Computed example of a mutant assay.
Amino acid sequence: MASQPLMASANVELLNTPALHSTRAAHSVITNLQPLNDGYLLTGERGLLLQWRADGHWQQQDSPVSVGLTAVTLLADGSAVAVGQDAAILRRTRDGAWQKVFDGYDLSRLQINAQEARRDQLQQLIDDTGNNAEDDADIEELEYQLEELEFALEDSQAELESGPNKPLLDIVVAGGNRLYAIGAYGTLLRSDDGGDSWQLRSASLDNPDRFHLSAITRSDDGSLYIVGESGLGFVSRDGGDSWETMDLPYDGSLFGIVSQAGSGNLVAFGLQGHVLVSRDGGNSWQHHKVEAGASLLGGTIDDSGRVVLVGHGGLIASFAIAEPAVISVRKHPSGAAFSAVAVQGEQLILAGQFGVTAWNMN
């Protein structure tokens, strides 16, 4: 679950232009992979969607957009939802057809609606406080909030006219048909119908500076975890209805978080090789660092508790979840920046700068 560069499309029509098919698709920039019964579903640059098997066989799927796609998740009924640049959200039905169901224009409209409602609420509070306050301190603070909100509203209205520029960076199934998508500037979106429609839930996070949200994961007990810029972290124990801030022992950018099946084990990772490990569902964390110092962009924990993290310069770091201070470091000969990894038997499935490849761990 890697954080991707924040950029707007040079041409907003890319949101409405189907991706080109290429004989080199499996060697394009791959951003994320999701295990399937017979392989992996991959996302990548220029709207790339493809199914890939470890024997090298792959098939590109028709994609309705040409913006970069950053993450994909699967629902229990066999459908899939992918997210990407310019807040694009695609949904694949069980028959295999991908459709765009949301984009940055929709996000701007949701933000404008929320900001207008909050503006009206603040103005009413100012009016009510003015009638009752003994001093001007309360009114001054509310007027400051209103002024800041007016600036944000102007930005949202300008973005609606000029075109989308906020990428979505990750997505997770929170149970049943509920999904959450996260991204730049504190964006949090929720769907309760399998990805067909979306609601803005950014205000449910204590994130006044609108720090970027990079990655989200779900543990087996249904808890949801988000990490992002400036050591930001959130946890929800009720399916996303409410969120609490996590106290993380690192204040730099985190690009990913993964959970181990059947346990409370979590690993978050990010800038310059920083690694955070929790053995109790995010209540407490240990801070470690990969000596190589390269940024970590993707990771996984297998059933045995083996953690594998990948990142810039072909970095592959691994350790046992019970011994996080003992980190083994290897470099892939390609030197590629890897954004995602999966373990398949004695092989690593590596996705990143030069596409996707299988690599023997021994």
Rank of each mutant, 00 (worst) to 15 (best):
A2V: 11
S3Q: 12
S22D: 10
R24Y: 13
A25K: 11
T31N: 09
P35F: 10
D38S: 13
G39Y: 00
Y40F: 14
G44Q: 02
E45I: 15
E45M: 11
L49G: 02
L50R: 05
Q59H: 15
Q61C: 04
Q61V: 07
P64L: 05
V65K: 05
T70E: 07
T70G: 03
L75I: 04
V81H: 11
A82Y: 05
G84N: 00
G84F: 01
R92W: 06
T93R: 14
A97M: 15
K100Y: 04
V101Y: 10
Y105T: 13
Q115T: 12
R119V: 12
G130D: 15
G130N: 13
A133R: 02
A133P: 11
A133V: 09
E134P: 05
D135V: 02
I139R: 11
E140Q: 15
E140P: 00
Q145P: 12
A152I: 08
A158I: 09
P164H: 04
P164D: 05
P167A: 03
L169R: 12
Y180Q: 03
T187W: 07
T187H: 12
S197E: 01
W198Q: 01
R201C: 14
S202D: 03
S202Y: 06
L213H: 01
L213D: 01
D220C: 02
D220N: 03
S223E: 13
G228C: 07
E229H: 03
L232C: 02
V235T: 06
E244S: 14
E244Y: 09
M246Q: 07
L248R: 08
P249F: 08
Y250A: 04
S253K: 09
G256N: 05
V258K: 05
N265I: 07
G273W: 05
L276K: 06
D280A: 05
G281W: 08
S284F: 01
Q286C: 13
E291Q: 12
G293Y: 00
L297D: 10
I301Y: 01
V310T: 00
G313D: 06
A320M: 06
A322C: 07
E323L: 09
P324Y: 00
I327R: 00
S328K: 14
A337S: 10
A342I: 01
V343T: 06
L350P: 00
T357L: 01
M361D: 00
N362E: 14
